[in-house]
Design a protein around this nucleic acid. Structure first.
Lengths: 113, 113
DNA sequence: TCGATATTTCTGGAATAATCGAAATATCGA
DNA sequence: TCGATATTTCGATTATTCCAGAAATATCGA
């Protein structure tokens, strides 16, 4: 991931509604949720939410697929990994000992091991 | 970390110059760099950069200390860990098996282990 | 104290982003 | 095909962010 792409992804997440949507989709898992369902859950108008979802999609953080009349959105775990990897790799580059505490981030025994 | 604080941190990083500054400081390590040195490295005017540094500081991503005429800025590793932790914890909540690939993020043998 | 260096604060205008109503598109079931 | 449901696109207004010049503040050395 390059800096401009990282800025785009961070910009996409730097908004209360969009971050809430992203977290919701991350929790929803690969099955995802319909756009309307997300709108209801978040409390946003469908057209506004559609804009947000497009932004998240362009940033590579969510994917979409059509299912009948609905469009199902789901978190893009690869995109998320790229973004976090960019930040963490940056952190540890050259001197792993500096960011020791960051190691505990995902090294917790019940998550991502 | 709560959602508003996460949005503030993500907003702070969602800017090409600020993200570049943050990466620079992360690489610089705990010793940090003087504001003027950062400005030169990034290619920004001192006053503009000062604004950026204030934004990063308010977001909890950098710290500052005065050293004579200079102000030394350094990355706030705790703040960074909080932000990444918020995102990763969110990712893995409840179903660790979903984000398996994210585990490789910081589990690489030469970093943060 | 005075001048030089380093950084910050203040200000205003320009660029960008957010939001909503209305209209358009896509799909389904009858 | 037609009406209903689901979502997106368009257009315009409002709000926010970005940036640089000018001035203010802080520190040091002479």
């Amino acid at each position: 991931m390059q800096l401009p792409a990282a800025v785009e992804a961070l910009s996409a997440l730097a908004h209360a509604s969009r971050l809430a949507v992203f977290r919701l989709l991350v929790r929803a898992g690969p099955d995802g949720m319909a756009a309307g369902e997300i709108a209801r859950e978040i409390g946003a108008l469908p057209n506004t939410l559609s804009t947000h979802l497009t932004i998240l999609g362009n940033a590579g953080l969510v994917r979409s697929r059509r299912d009948g009349r609905s469009v199902i959105y789901s978190a893009d775990y690869d995109g998320m990994r790229d973004l976090l990897g960019f930040l963490v790799a940056d952190c540890c580059a050259g001197r792993p000992e500096i960011c020791g505490t960051l190691g505990e981030l995902t090294a917790s025994p019940d998550c991502c091991t």
